[in-house]
């Protein structure tokens, strides 16, 4: 493994054996399949995919919580399965969307205790705690019992817990899940500031928020059904769609118009439909702009009215649709076991 690599995986796989009723034979769920990734030191690397894609499973394997069933993974130079004791002092992790922590302890006590588990000298730990709480706007609640914090503030405390030990490699699993818009913005800024402070720090972030991945990540791996479908800089991933014209169209109720009707048009390369309160939102990828007229004609035939039409630049969502054939929301609804 190269010394510059913070994370490396080779043919990494994980299969869960699901226990059914006694009569039922045991089923297998493939959570990860042949994952090959390399993350450089100093990189902010994103794992992007719908719920159930395998992002959290990959993080669990990389943080030594879960054994892989095939392949191997190294973090900070050590094998996560064979040498977990070498990996653990160099990493930390924060999971979003949960309210973990000891409610009987104050914010400061919770954080101080975890710093002690990592061997941070007590005085230094207290200085770091104050500085980090200041950065996330939680310093005035330092002596509040964590059970008295709102979900968002508790999540901020957990984020500080992850950064407090100054890990070489930090894993953030959906860190902004469940936060309000303001708190999300604070956390994203905090992440970027933390990385800027030391070029050796590496951060692996999982998210299903496309904008978050685009805004934060140096490189992104798009993952679905346990497989890495593409991995590159967000700009490079989007370039593959530049040749297409992308339109977002708000329409009245579909009156039987389906995704297949749209895809049957020779100029439509991708089509995604999501229901809205007033009708539907269509995301279309056309080989050329002039093909739009024929799509509008199709709407007219089906008595579907166009309420709003926007031409836009490709996003990572479009990349996902291009790779998987449907949007992340659709994939979450239909594609997962």
């Amino acid at each position: 493994m190269s010394a510059s690599l913070a994370i490396e995986t080779k043919d990494l796989g994980r299969i869960y054996k699901l226990r059914g009723s006694k009569k039922e034979t045991r089923k297998e769920l493939v959570a990860l399949q042949g994952v090959n990734l390399t993350v450089e030191r100093g990189e902010l690397f994103g794992l992007l995919g719908p719920n159930g894609a395998g992002k959290t499973t990959l993080i669990k394997v990389l943080t030594t919580l879960l054994s892989p069933t095939s392949g191997w993974a190294r973090v900070a130079g050590a094998d996560v399965h064979a040498e977990p004791d070498l990996v653990r002092p160099r990493i930390n992790m924060v999971s979003g969307g949960e309210s973990s922590g000891y409610g009987l302890l104050t914010v400061r006590e919770n954080l101080w205790m975890f710093s002690q588990f990592y061997g941070v000298p007590s005085k230094e730990a207290n200085e770091r705690i104050e500085a980090l709480l200041e950065m996330v706007g939680l310093k005035d609640r330092m002596n509040t019992k964590s059970s008295d914090l709102s979900t968002g503030l508790r999540q901020k405390m957990n984020i500080v817990r992850g950064f407090l030990t100054e890990p070489e490699v930090l894993f953030l699993d959906e860190p902004t899940l469940g936060l309000d818009v303001g708190a999300m913005r604070d956390v994203r800024k905090f992440i970027l500031d933390w990385l800027k402070a030391d070029k050796e720090r590496t951060l692996l972030l999982t998210t299903h928020y496309m904008a978050e991945a685009e805004e934060l990540c140096d490189r992104v791996a798009i993952i679905n059904k346990g497989k890495v479908l593409a991995c590159d800089k967000p700009s490079v991933l989007k370039q593959r769609l530049q040749k297409d014209a992308l339109f977002e169209i708000q329409v009245s109720p579909l009156n039987g118009l389906t995704q297949q009707h749209l895809l049957d048009q020779p100029e439509v390369t991708k089509a995604a439909i999501s229901e809205t309160e007033t009708g539907a939102k269509l995301s279309l990828s056309l080989v050329e702009e002039s093909a739009l007229a024929r799509v509008i004609n199709l709407f007219t035939q089906k008595d579907v009215k166009v309420m709003n039409l926007t031409k836009r630049e490709p996003t990572l969502e479009d990349v996902f649709v291009d790779l998987v054939g449907r949007s992340m929301a659709e994939e979450e609804e239909h594609g997962q076991p």
Partner: peptide, 11 residues
């Protein structure tokens, strides 16, 4: 407390 995983990844 949902902290066991954080204890497990601590040194």
């Amino acid at each position: 407390y949902k902290t066991l995983k954080y204890m497990y990844i601590a040194p």
